[in-house]
Design a protein around this nucleic acid. Structure first.
Lengths: 221, 221
DNA sequence: ACCTGAACACCGTTCAAGT
DNA sequence: ACCTGAACACCGTTCAAGT
């Protein structure tokens, strides 16, 4: 007999680690990382704040679980079909899309390494694809690392929530004259619009092409 | 008559924004971002914790000042002489070196944009160099953005302090069998050693070369 | 095993006040 | 203008206790 059956109202499901992590991520998505607290998490779970400490030793361990939850949301099936360089690009776009859904958790993803089995399997998929294009395993691993850090770094600058509180207005309306930054001024005059998606794709493909040339990668025929 | 002259002992210099930011950065470098607090900053400055609020509206604004302080420590004079691709590589290595000195502040650098004049001038240097190699201003700006986000993303994963508390041990000794990750296992067997500096240089030069080919960049002769 | 609740040692920031 | 100090509404985590 479960709790729901003995009592009339299904007040809450039994606690477990993945569910706690999901709830924590939902709170962070909704309110931001700074507004998140173990006490609010307890309230959202309709449980004493200390109850979560039975499943996670501390807040940091909970954050690790959140990062893994985000990684495992990546759909890696996209990286199979196409040419090697297209496969890499598609894979990294999939990773970017999964992470883009959680701007307030990006700083966690960027700084909390995860070496759990599910994430390693995720890495394996792309590394294996690169070796099939002619890279040595160690070379493939280095490339994947560079693709990943670029993706996360770009995403952080694009939509990442500022660590340490919301950003305020620029510290004074320092009107700087265009003569000090002529090239930047020229870019503005040329109608520069910041298109993060296009820019990411551009940078990603530049790196892919550069690696491809460096290592002589190509698909076997 | 300064405070030092009227009293026998020069207990502390007068407060000012840059000095406060430097002290805050020193505390963050020494103890970490989580251990940093406005109260400890006040203590380090030998002043009431609330005194800093006369120079910064809140902690977030202080963090912005810290990020700018780190950016302005970059030595941009290195980007002048060589070929365009060498100039870019040298510039980005200089940026990386400046940021590498502050692992606990990297998450701030990665997520708190700075648009103050000194930083824009920093950007101008590299953007201008790229236009001299044949890039349009808007293209140069996009490239610099990609170089920067890769550099910061790679650095975060390399030495960045975890946001949200120190990382604990992996959640259980999940011995995953090598058959699930054969390529990763092969890389380990091949004596893979993680060399962040070499890997960064490799990825950076791949991106530089890829962009160079894409835009047909070359130095004028 | 799983959850509670009080307690400890902290936080950032407000506000009114001092000089 | 520059700094103080009390007060408010919070934190994460410990510990002993309940079931």
């Amino acid at each position: 007999m479960t709790n729901e059956e003995t009592q009339g109202r299904p007040s809450r499901p039994t606690l477990n680690a993945p569910h706690i992590a999901q709830m924590a991520l939902a709170l962070i998505d909704a309110e931001g990382l700074d507004a998140f607290s173990m006490r609010k998490l307890g309230a959202a779970l309709e449980v004493d704040p200390m109850a979560v400490y039975h499943y996670f030793p501390n807040k940091a361990a909970l954050f690790d679980a959140i990062v893994e939850a985000i990684y495992t949301q990546i759909d890696t099936s996209v990286a199979v079909a196409a040419e090697w360089d297209e496969a890499v690009a598609t894979y990294m776009h999939a990773m970017r899309n999964a992470m883009r859904a959680h701007p307030h958790a990006l700083s966690l993803v960027a700084t909390r390494p995860v070496n759990t089995a599910p994430v390693l399997v995720l890495v394996e998929v792309l590394v294996a694809r690169l070796t099939r294009a002619g890279a040595a395993p160690t070379e493939a691993l280095a490339m994947v690392n560079c693709f990943g850090t670029f993706t996360i770094g770009h995403l952080l600058a694009d939509v990442g929530a500022p660590v340490g509180g919301p950003e305020g207005p620029p510290p004074d309306a320092t009107i700087l004259d265009a003569s000090a930054i002529p090239t930047l001024a020229a870019a503005m005059a040329a109608g520069w619009v910041f298109d993060p998606d296009a820019q990411f794709d551009l940078g990603l493909r530049a790196m892919i092409a550069g690696f491809g040339a460096h290592y002589g990668l190509r698909d076997p025929n």
